[in-house]
Amino acid sequence: MSAMLLNKEKWPEFVGKLTGKKVWAPQADSEGMRFALLAEGEAPVPDYNNTRVPPKGVLFPQTETMLKFQVKATEVDEPELDQETVVLGLRPCDARAMAIVEKLFKWDIDDPYFIKRRDMVTLVGLACNDPGLNCFCPSVGGSPASTEGLDLLMVDLGENYLLEAVTGKGEALLKEMGDLLSEAGADEAKEKEKLVKEAEGKIKRTVDTEGVPEGLPGLWEDPLWGKVSASCLGCGTCTYLCPTCHCFDIQDEVEGFDARRCRTWDSCMFGEYTLHTSGHNPRPTRKERTRNRINHKYSYYVDKFDVIACVGCGRCSNLCPVNIDIIDTIRQVKEAL
């Protein structure tokens, strides 16, 4: 595929050419970065480590209307999803997470909302030159410049961005840009390789997942789950901020005579998640829930879709209030094998 160069000074023009599309980009809010819709004329340069909340919400919004209807009626309407969307500057791990989750949403019966959004979105990734403290993507099959799930990859070469189209959608976007871009040469490709190597070298924390998916079921009654979960608060931080966590809840909401059925992110760390109406709970304590979370990512998902549902973004380790560190947990699993 073609590789192009974009001078950083032309970045606002580049963003400006995306008119008519919804553009999501990392933006600074009062505390840190988050993905938000760009207002017309804005073009913040993506200079950040990563956002606290992953951009999974672009394809799988935290709250999404599934159906609209009137109270006591039997007719339902679907919301319209038809606007082209571009996500600018997401990290390769988050894009990879979208590709991983897509496997589930396309499994057997398609999830129409996710698929429609996926079809209309162009993911423009930004390779990591400076991975964070808890990044461990190479340990779980990713890389700071992974293109999996992306349509277009940008690499920050200092003065320029190197743009590499990955899919037809990315190619089309490059074409739209016309003469904003210039052809990249072999030097830039070399420069990129060097940067990726450097970035990989900066990753300090690693996990060894060899044998973990096969071994996890055998550790069902291992005391390690009790130890890991003892300090767990049962909050949803790790799951809500995880780019691959995809569980949701469906609720009906009524406002006057208007009503909707909506889905919201849910978390397997909540007791209420599996609670039966009878009061019976198949996962009554935090131990079972923690065990399920790790098993789901590192074993069940591998069984079903042949890929570990963890991309090594490090958010759960970073933000867990009680230092339940997935890197350390997998290390403990490995030791117990």
Binding site: W107, D108, I109, D111, D266, Y273, T274, N292, H296, Y300
Partner: peptide, 8 residues
Amino acid sequence: IGKCGRCN
């Protein structure tokens, strides 16, 4: 339909 994750 096997998407919401809770019944595993």
